[in-house]
Structures are given as C-alpha cells and as structure tokens.
Write a protein that binds this DNA or RNA. Structure first.
Length: 925
RNA sequence: AGGCGCGUAGCUCAGUUGGUUAGAGCGCUACCUUGACACGGUAGAGGUCAGGAGUUCGAGUCUCCUCGUGCCUACCA
C-alpha cells in the first residue's frame, strides 16, 4: 500500500503534505479504524469517551469554525483512544428545516417554478433528491481532514429511526401536558412565511423614528397623543392604554377615541376606548400607548387582560390586510409612509423624533420580524428548565470555561415557552390530526384512522413541521436507539463531552440538557436500577470554544468577503499545519484571529519533523552498512533502560516524560494551546536543537568505532523519535502516520499510529537531576557561543576555553567535554583556579567562562555591553537590597521567598562585581 | 437597559492559587549555504503589562474608577 522502501531512501528534502494526506484520509475511512462496536462499550472497567459531533447543516460547507471544532474534538478523541479508552465520536448531519427549504426553493426559482406549484409531496421528494446529491459535501470535507469519527454510526436527523424517536418524544410530551397549541403572538418571518423561535431572531440597533400621533376623542372634547415606532399598526388598534396613576390622563380614562384612518369602504373610523393598565409607563413617550393586540406581544397581553378583540391587519407576507381600506395590499413600509403622510396632512402628526431601537431580524432570511398572532404549538418549558438548571447547579454538567455556566443559568431562568411549530414543508411533520367534525385534535404515534374524540373519519394531519432544534435536541439519546432500550444506549449514554461554539449554547446545548434530563430519567440504568438526574444528563462536560475570525479580527461573513475556506488553506499548507495553528491559538476567553503567517510557521514545523525523520533514516542506512541492526521491537525497553546512559539520554527521556505529562494535563483542561506548545517545544527545542546535535557525536561507524555504543545511541534515538511521533499524532495525524509507517518499513505493530499507546511518564525513565545538569551545560554552551561571536572567532575554527567553576560543574564539564567541543566548537577546556575577569570572560551563577582567543572585538561595543549589564545589575541589586532592608517584608514574607531573594542578591552582586572588573580591565579608548 | 469578555514586545497571543530578573511564535538585526532541514542553524535587539487610585511586605495577577474595544441577552410602545 505504501512505497515504504522507497521512502526511507528517497524522502524528498521538503515535506509535501498534498501527496500523502488524501491517501491516509481514505485509508482511515476504508479500514474503518475508528468504528466502535457496541460490545466494546459494554466491557467492564474500560473507560469510555463518547462524544457527538454537532451535526452540521446538510446545506453547509465547511468553514473555519467547523475546522476548529473538529480539530479540537479530533485531538481529544485521538488522545483518549491512545490512552486506552473506548473512544467513540459520532458524526451526522442536520436536516436544517429553513436553510434547506430555502436552498431548494432557490433552485426551483431558477427553474421558473416554486414549491406551491409542485405541491408538498413532490417538494419534499425534491428536497430528498437535493440532499442525495449535495448533502454529503460537508462530511466528505470532514473525511479529508482526517476526523477520527465512527462512520458506521453516521446519522441524518430525518432518518426513519430518528423520525420515529421524534414522534415518540412529541407524543410523550403531549401526554404529559407539556405541549399545547394556541393562538399567540410569535416571531413571524414574512419572507419564508413561518414562525420562528425567540432565538432565531437577531437584534440589531438601528436608528428609527418614533411618531407622536393625535387620536381625537369621539365626543369632540379633545384628544390624546400616543407614541409609536410602527405607525402602520394603528390600523389594528383596539384600545389606547394609560397608566391608572398618570394624572395627565385621569380625565380621559374610559373615554372613547375615534381611530384615524381606520374607516373602510368610506365608512366611519372605528371607535376604541381608553383603558388603564400598569404596563403604560408615564415616563415613556407620551405616556399613552396604542394597543394592537394582534401585532405586538405586550399589546396582546393587555388585550388578554381587558378582553380586547385581536384585529389582524397584516397578512403572512406583511402586507396590509384590510379590505376596503385605502391601505389594503400595501407592504408594511409603504403603508407606514402613506399613513404618516396622511396623518401629517390631517394635522394629526404631532411629532417625529429619532429613536434607536433594537430591531428583530430573522436569522435565516435577514428580514425584519413581524410579531404576528397565529396558531402555533408550544412546549411548556418551565418543568424542563427546572431539571436543566438543577443538573448544572448540582455539577452534573461542567462547563469550560466556567463563565458559561452563569450565561446558561441566566438564560434558563428567564426562559419562555418554546414555539416548536414551523410553517414549512421540510422537517418532521407534527403527529397531530385535526378533526373536521368536532374540531378537536388527535395526537398519536401511528397515523390514526379516526378522531379519538368523536370517531369521525374526517381527520387531516397538521401541516406544520417541528423546529429543527427539537429533533437535534434529542440526539444524545436518539442516536443510540431511544426509545428502544438498546445495548448502545446502555453502553454509551450519557456521553462524556460536548465541544461547541457559544453561538449554539441556547439553541442546542440547553435544549439537549432539558430534553435529556427529562426523557432519560425514565430509562432505567443498565443494571436495572432507577436512573438519577446525574445519569440522565446528555453529557458530563461542555467545552465552549472561541469564534474564528479573520486576521484582522473581523467576523468572517460572506457579505464582507473575508471568509477563509479551510480547504483552500489546507491545500496550501497541509491539514496538519492548519490543525496545529487552530490548536495552538485555541486559548480560552479570546476569539481566534486566524493568520496564515502562523500556519506558515507550523508548516515549517511539519517540515522539521519530516527532516528529522530523514536524518534518522539516513543513520539507519549508515548503520546497516556498518553491520549494525537495530531491533525495533526493543524500543519500549530503550525508553526505560538508562543504566549507565550518557547525560543526554537521561535528559531527553526526562524531557519526553515531562512533555507527555504536560500534554495530558493540558488536554484534560482543554488547553489545546498549552498542549500544542509543549509538543512543539519538545520536538523542536529539545529533540532537534539539542538531542540530535549531541547524538551526532555518538553515531560513529568508522574504523575502530565502538559499534555497541553506537547501536545503543541509535536505538535510543529511534525510540525517542518513535515516542515523539506518538506524542504528536493527535495534533498532526497525517505526517506522523506517514513517517511512522515508513519508520517500521512494513512491519508496523498496528494498522495506524492512532491505534498505539500515547506516551506516558511511566513508560519513560528520566530524572530531574539530568535536567538541571543539562541546563548548566546548555547555558555554558550558549555562553561560549556568544563569546566566540563577540571575540570574532571564525565559525569553523575551534578555540580553547577556560572555565572557573564549582565542583559540580567541574565534573559535569569534564564528563561532557566532547559535547562542549562539538556544540560550542571548543578545542580544549582548561580549568582556572580563580574567578575569571576581563578578556571577554562571562559569568553566570554557576560558572565563569572565557574563550581563549586573540581578541578581535570592538572595544567600544564591549564597553557599551558591559556598561549596560552593569546598570542592569546595579538596578537589580538596589531593588533586592531595598527589599531586604524592609522590615515588614522580612517579618511577613515566607522564608523561601526571603531566602530566594538573598540568594539572588548575592548572585547579582557577584555578577555586578565581575562586570565592573571586566569593564575596568578594558583598554581605554 | 442588563450581563460577559478583552486591552502584555512591531504583529498574533501565553502568563495557573499575588512571590526572585514577564514568556512563545512570527517579524526585525548580525553571522553561518556545517552531509537531516534556508520551511534551516547560531547569537541578539525589543515590554514603565491601556491610564489612575486602592488593598498588600510584595500587583501583569485582587478591588474600584476612567478610556478604548468585542460580544451576549432583552416584550419598553
């Protein structure tokens, strides 16, 4: 399947992701590597990691937000899987009622027809056809990105089994008295002509006008002035309300008003009364409110309280519906203009003021929402919300970041009943039948033959469909077979985690919590015991991630044209680089300003990994030629066997263990940025920059070389590298898979690196002492390199150095002289018996070091540097001394802080004195 | 109208319970085409942590205020 043999000899110099990624993406899906059998989930004692993919709309195309979401989920899933857990990530798509219907309607429009001409049945068929052709696009994109989901469990929210579950849920809620139908004011989208829920309305501050209109009293004794932002609705006024305590209006309470412009067919204007209601606030507008019960939720409430008639004067398309009126048939805004003009002409327009108001726009179509009185289905939400509040309050569901718990709580506590009916054709049709004979409703799981109330056969099914979020809110249990008591449901519910953006916190997350807490309480636990709320919740944890913005922090939108297509970026830099970018920028609290420059940097990282692999493969080839063969089955042992091993071996193993521990801790806290930075730092900073450079010394194959030592060094090198690949693999699955297979050259111990074990500290030997010793050595090497450069020692030339150091460092330098020679280009090391000053000597806390070389330095520059150093030390010293002289500090600060400061002060003083001596030793200019 | 964030190096961002001299990547400067890698190596420069006040022995970190900025929720005509 792979050209492995070729690879190990002829890896191209630069890594080219395009040639390998598609191959592995297909391989992972074809081999079904990430499908989980139900039996695996029922094993005793095995930890499970179950998670649902937030189902993208079938109409969707993958955007950066999806990619961030999927990258995070994939990293977590791969990490859990490699940690020995049963890791199951369930994918699917959402039928997305409005979005999909609009998409197909647009298609019909381009063919010169419309859904009404097709009829409901043909239209729905047409949508299914559309879904068949275009619906899979987003999941195909997901496959290309290597998401390690369980494709065997892929679902669509309109699948038969899910439709049955949706019906069941609806019927049960109805039976429990939690679903009702009635005429209420709802948010009406006049473009697509359906009701939408409160959440589907977006508010936008806009500058509008507020109109003060004079309504004359019928008895001619005067008038009352009302204030409104929507003058066209006056046609539907059925009262005027004033506050009972408003002294200005005491005299007109109960009087009759003649409503201007309301006459039809040339008849007289309607008469309405002035009533009192607390809702009218004296301080707002004129203190008098026109009441339009059919077109405003507050007015509706007033109407209910006072038994006012509801007069609907706008139709489904927001055109005036008032036959016989001159305004009949006008669009709402045209009507507004004309009414204002007419009022002005009649002298009834008292005032027009600028007024900013939050206008409601339909999330899907962008048109202004028209509050409209209509028959709709609602879920009585309070009983569900109570459980959902409880579940989070009691800690059964944990939010990360924690601040969202509060957001959730606030919303849940102010929740309104949920309008779940939509006047669409695409969706789950409400399982209710209206009776023509008795006008009552039959709600049933199966299509009924007769009306359950009067046995009439004259029944027709409700034409409304359910809000898409109703079905997706059930997913955490319906995907596992609910209402059936399936093994899947027993094994995998509740899921562990939900990863999503805050934009669907209320739409989806909150609904899942409400519906899960409600329905699953009735499902016994696998052992037959009663299920408690803590096990009825749909997931244990919710991780809310940030929004991906463009490099200028602008929200990506089609209208702005700043949408970054992840597939394009992936083509340019490789999936691994884009994944790594998203992971490393996924810090809590801030949105992600996606920058290609950053991605470019991580492409370099991939290239670095690639070239490290090339280096290793070359060494393996050299070894083979020298007759040294490494046993790849012994790599695990190599990670633990440090008996008599050189410093760098013990050090890199300690670093590897630390990196693994850091990744574990970070991912457990959803700190993808920290985890990414830990692996990056380990691989590039520790492994490549230091370890490989040191190992180059050890790999001697020539005459008289100690081949046994070479073999040991090479084995450790390979072992660390192989472990590093596993460490990197959740973040960069493609390049690690490719190199890992090449590494084993057809004899890989598993079908995929994703199925191997994630490195754990307990798998790796390593001691803290090796880290601190190595740090001293690194510091010394860096210092010598700096000195060489200052003194103008040519790059290729080795120079002797002098070292003055304590015992610890003497032994360290002595033992690792070859390392110094190689990495700092030192020819010989001479130990000094006294502190070194002048002559380009440099000091640290642990040692003094000087490069012995004829100075070619710029004296002026050196003086400048030393002067600067001196000033820095003086400042530090003064600060430390001031602090140490502070009695309050000495009395109150903990001992280790005081000791630390004392030590620091002593060191600073030493460095200060040396810098001073060195400065004085410089020849005068 | 309420609520939640953010403001740290030229840019993008880290900075865990307050504790020794505030970090990373990119960019920048200098040197290096060294047999893994120029998508590279080595060494550097660069920050009064938005501003002010307070608490504390000690504040990037806690409190308050101001300024700037982003978002969420909401039935004020």
């Amino acid at each position: 399947m792979l050209g492995l043999k070729d690879m190990s000899h002829e890896l191209p110099k630069a890594y080219d992701p395009s040639v390998i990624e598609e191959r592995w993406a297909e391989y992972w899906v074809r081999e079904r590597l990430f499908d989980v059998a139900t039996a695996e989930g029922t094993q005793e004692g095995v930890k499970k990691f179950t998670m649902l993919l937030p189902p993208p709309n079938v109409t969707g195309r993958l955007h950066m937000g999806h990619m961030l979401n999927q990258t995070e989920m994939d990293i977590l899933t791969r990490w859990h899987r490699m940690s020995g857990e049963v890791a199951m990530w369930v994918p699917g798509t959402d039928h997305a009622g409005i979005a999909t219907q609009m998409m197909v309607e647009r298609q019909l429009a381009s063919e010169g027809t419309k859904r009404q001409e097709l009829g409901r049945v043909a239209f729905v068929e047409r949508v299914w056809e559309w879904k068949g052709v275009y619906g899979g696009a987003i999941l195909d994109q997901m496959k290309r990105l290597g998401a390690s989901v369980d494709w065997g469990r892929e679902y669509f929210t309109m699948d038969d089994r899910l439709s049955i579950a949706v019906k069941e849920a609806f019927v049960r809620l109805h039976e429990q008295g939690l679903i009702y139908r009635g005429a209420y004011i709802v948010n009406w989208d006049p473009a697509i002509q359906t009701a939408v829920s409160d959440l589907e309305v977006e508010h936008e501050e806009r500058l509008g006008k507020i109109y003060h209109i004079r309504y004359p009293l019928a008895d001619g004794s005067g008038s009352i002035v009302v204030a409104t932002t929507r003058p066209e609705t006056m046609l539907g006024d059925t009262a005027v309300a004033v506050n009972p305590d408003d002294e200005r209006y005491l005299a007109v309470q109960g009087k009759i008003v003649r409503l201007p412009l309301s006459g039809v067919n040339g008849g007289p204007d309607r008469e309405i009364s002035i009533l009192t209601d607390d809702w009218a606030k004296p301080e707002f507008g004129t203190g008098a409110v026109k009441v339009t019960p059919a077109h405003d939720p507050n007015d509706f409430a007033i109407g209910q309280r006072h038994g006012l008639p509801n007069l609907t004067i706008l139709d489904e398309t927001a055109h005036v519906l008032l036959p016989g009126s001159p305004y009949h048939g006008l669009d709402r805004y045209a009507a507004r203009t004309k009414i204002v003009e007419d009022l002005k002409e009649m002298g009834l327009l008292v005032d027009v003021k600028d007024h900013t108001l939050a206008i409601g726009l339909s999330q899907r179509t962008g048109v202004v929402i028209e509050p409209r009185l209509s028959q709709q289905w609602f879920v009585k939400i309070q009983p569900l919300a109570d459980k959902a509040i409880d579940a989070v309050d009691k800690g059964y569901i944990k939010f990360t970041p924690d601040q969202y718990r509060k957001t959730y709580d606030e919303w849940m506590k102010n929740i309104h009943d949920w309008c779940i009916s939509r006047q669409l054709w695409w969706g789950h049709r409400i399982p209710a039948w209206h009776c023509a004979a008795c006008a009552k409703i039959t709600v049933a799981r199966e299509t009924p033959e007769v009306c359950e109330h009067c046995q009439s056969k004259e029944i027709v099914q409700e034409t409304d469909v359910l809000d898409t979020w109703f079905s997706s809110g059930l997913l955490p249990f319906t995907v596992f077979g609910w209402p059936e008591k399936t093994p899947d449901l027993a094994a995998f519910y509740p899921t562990q985690l939900l990863v999503t953006g805050f934009d669907i916190l209320f739409f989806w997350v909150a609904r899942m919590i409400m519906l899960g807490s409600h329905f699953m309480l009735d499902v016994p636990m696998p052992d037959g015991s009663k299920r408690e709320l803590k096990d009825a919740v749909p997931f244990r944890e919710v991780y809310i991630h940030a929004l991906v913005r463009d490099a200028d922090r602008q929200k990506m939108s089609k209208t702005k044209g700043n949408v970054i297509d992840p597939i394009e970026v992936v083509k340019k830099y490789g999936t691994d680089a884009v994944r790594f970018t998203l992971a490393s920028m996924a810090s809590p609290g801030t949105d992600i300003a996606f920058s290609e420059e950053r991605t470019d940097g991580y492409r370099s990282f991939a290239n670095k990994i690639w070239n490290a692999a090339r280096f290793l493969f070359m060494q393996v080839d050299r070894a083979k030629e020298a007759g040294v063969a490494v046993d790849l089955t012994k790599l695990g042992t190599a990670l633990k066997d440090v008996e008599g091993a050189p410093l760098e071996t013990r050090w890199i193993l300690a670093r590897l263990g630390a990196a693994a521990a850091a990744v574990d801790a970070s991912l457990a806290a959803y700190r993808f940025d920290e985890a990414a930075s830990a692996v990056y730092q380990f691989f590039w900073g520790d492994f490549c920059d230091w370890y490989i450079e040191i190992v180059k010394l050890r790999l001697e194959f020539g005459e008289g070389a100690d081949l046994a030592a070479t073999k040991t060094a090479l084995t450790t090198l390979l072992a660390v590298f192989e472990a590093a690949l596993r460490l990197l693999s959740p973040f960069m699955p493609f390049i690690t898979e490719e190199i890992w297979h090449a590494f084993y050259d057809g004899a890989a111990p598993a079908k995929s690196i994703a199925l191997t074990r994630f490195p754990r500290t307990e798998d790796v030997a390593g001691d803290a002492a090796s880290i601190s010793a190595m740090e001293v050595l690194q510091q010394m090497i860096v210092t010598v390199r700096g000195l060489r450069k200052e003194m103008g020692v040519p790059e290729k030339e080795a120079a002797p150095i002098r070292v003055f150091a304590g015992n610890r460092v003497v032994a360290l330098v002595d033992d690792n002289a070859d390392l110094l020679r190689r990495l700092a280009r030192v020819s010989e090391v001479e130990f000094a018996s006294a502190a070194l000053t002048g002559d380009g000597a440099r000091s640290t806390a642990d040692f003094d070091v000087a490069v012995v070389y004829e100075r070619q330095i710029d004296v002026a520059a050196e003086r400048e540097r030393l002067t600067k150093d001196l000033a820095k030390f003086e400042k530090g010293l003064a600060a430390a001394e001031r602090q140490l002289g502070n009695e309050a500090f000495m009395a109150k600060a903990p001992a280790h802080i005081v000791d630390g400061l004392k030590k620091q002060a002593a060191e600073t003083k030493m460095l200060h004195d040396k810098a001073k001596t060195a400065l004085e030793a410089l020849p005068s200019a």
